[in-house]
Amino acid sequence: MYGKKVKLRILFISLLLVSVALSIYLILKSLEENVVYFLSPTEIRNLVEIENKKIRVGGMVKNNSIIIDSENVNFIITDFKNEINVNYSGPVPNLFEEGKGVVAEGFLKDQSFLIAEKILAKHDENYMPPEVAESLKDK
């Protein structure tokens, strides 16, 4: 029912979309380690070697792990399988809290110790009024 030209153009557009989508998929797949913003403690543990390169580690701040002395903030990032100790000196973001998400950027000393230069708070997708959060806690 459509003319030959129309069919050719449909074919052209489909080929264009499929080929470009596939190439982008391959590019992103091969660049995966650069596309991810941070690594989890488990991924750090599985690293073959530690390069002297800036790295980001993300996960939850372990409960009761924040120790603040005069200059340093020490805490533990956990993904509930593995943990990594973080040492940091500097201001922390407002949402930095125990039991909440965090991303620390810095240099690895070994597979379980990170000297952080920057701390970012990662917050989750839950939004609710304080009263609701309070009542959820009580349950």
Binding site: V35, Y37, V103, H123, E125, Y127
Partner: peptide, 10 residues
């Protein structure tokens, strides 16, 4: 798909 600083969709 990736670990991002941005939170998941709510």
């Amino acid at each position: 798909w990736w670990s991002t600083l941005h939170q998941d969709s709510s």
